[in-house]
Design a protein around this nucleic acid. Structure first.
Length: 196
DNA sequence: CCCTGATTCGC
DNA sequence: GCGAATCAGG
């Protein structure tokens, strides 16, 4: 596979969207994430400086255990005369980093406080708070978009438009992201069996 | 162990 | 230019 125009464009697009190199590699196919990263660098867009992203470049030096190669390459800045407006067509799949959708309507209606799963009688309020916070950042994936590494925590009512899966990166091994693991796997404290 | 991007360097 | 190997970190 070679870097055709289209492939490069897709690469640029996805990189701009904040996709990881490995994800891009998967999408493109025929390349590894290393290839993607290498290309990204060659294209000179290693900085994912999108909108308002703080480009704090910490000076990290002396990290070459083998050879010190002071790469004195005076590269001031590349304005990149890109006359290509990004189409914000789909607000639903908005990225998380730069455009927080301001006032998000409360996802969980008061009448139906209990989200998905089961009887999480008493989960630490902090965990719950974490969840509701995370849900704002959720990728909001559909069933088909889930992968082995996306949080499969369902949010909302399946019978409604307001239903999606978290989709954030899972905590290694687990089926859920960090926050949802917190409420999914309880310390099994109050798991008292009521005698029936 | 899973992942991330960054860098080097032989090709 | 390309990207595997490696590095450095989460």
């Amino acid at each position: 596979m070679s870097w055709t125009d289209e492939r490069v464009e897709l690469l640029k697009k996805m990189w701009a969207e904040g996709q990881s190199a490995s994800q891009i590699a998967k999408e493109l196919g025929g390349v590894t994430r290393n290839a993607v990263i290498g290309k990204v660098h060659r294209l000179g867009l290693s900085n994912r400086t999108g909108a308002g992203a703080p480009a704090a470049a910490p000076a990290k030096e002396a990290k070459a255990p083998k050879e010190v190669k002071p790469k004195a390459a005076p590269k001031p800045a590349e304005p990149e005369p890109e006359a290509k407006p990004r189409e914000p067509a789909v607000p639903a799949a908005a990225e998380t980093r730069s455009a927080p959708p301001a006032t998000r309507k409360q996802i969980i209606p008061a009448g139906q406080p209990l989200p998905p799963q089961p009887s999480a009688n008493e989960i630490s309020p902090e965990a719950l708070a974490k969840v509701s916070e995370v849900e704002k950042k959720a990728k909001k994936l559909t069933l088909m978009e889930l992968t082995e590494r996306t949080c499969k925590w369902p949010v909302g009512d399946p019978a409604t438009e307001d239903f999606w899966f978290c989709g954030l990166p899972v905590q290694q091994g687990k089926p859920y992201c960090d926050a949802h693991v917190g409420v999914a796997f309880q310390p099994m404290s109050s798991r008292r069996d009521r005698r029936r």
